[in-house]
């Protein structure tokens, strides 16, 4: 999934959950909604954190460790201890990211280090395809229209 889809859906979820994020919360939401893609250097976040993304891609592969329950649990717990006010935004951002990636054919390794890839609805979306853009545009349109 492309970054604008991840950000759009995460933003939309905050609207559905009737949350009113501050500027700091919005920045955290946007950052964490694309953060799991740090494991590939093609992504925007991966490009910024290049040495880390190279290492992650070489040792774990894309959609593995950063898309797993292990990572989601640990990062949510860390935020819960350190910044409890922002934990809900981190959870929304990370979970929506993983959920959206599960819509793609290759899915995500939710139970990493196990090798199984999990998908939902048979994984109909291809990253960067017209369906991906359609989801992105619709999410942003609904966000601004509601």
């Amino acid at each position: 999934m492309i970054s604008i889809t991840h950000i759009g859906i995460a933003m939309l979820l905050t609207k559905f959950l009737k949350l009113s994020p501050s500027l700091a919360s919005t920045i955290i939401l946007i950052f964490f909604s694309i953060f799991p893609d740090i494991d590939i250097n093609n992504s925007e976040i991966g490009f910024i954190f290049r040495p880390i993304s190279y290492e992650l891609e070489e040792h774990f592969g894309h959609r593995s460790i950063t898309h797993s329950f292990l990572f989601l649990g640990i990062s949510s717990l860390l935020f819960f201890i350190l910044f409890p006010d922002y934990v809900i935004y981190v959870i929304i951002a990370l979970f929506s990211h993983v959920f959206l990636d599960m819509l793609t054919y290759t899915g995500t390794k939710l139970l990493w280090p196990l090798n199984y890839r999990f998908v939902i609805f048979d994984g109909p979306v291809i990253t960067g395809s017209s369906l991906d853009y359609l989801i992105a545009i619709s999410s942003w349109m609904i966000y601004f229209l509601i």
């Binding site: 290759t106 899915g107 890839r117 999990f118 939902i120 048979d122 994984g123």
Partner: peptide
């Protein structure tokens, strides 16, 4: 990308 085992949590008819 190569996929060894895919587990479909929610099938499309659902």
């Amino acid at each position: 990308p190569c996929v060894w085992k895919r587990i479909n949590i929610i099938p499309l008819p659902a």
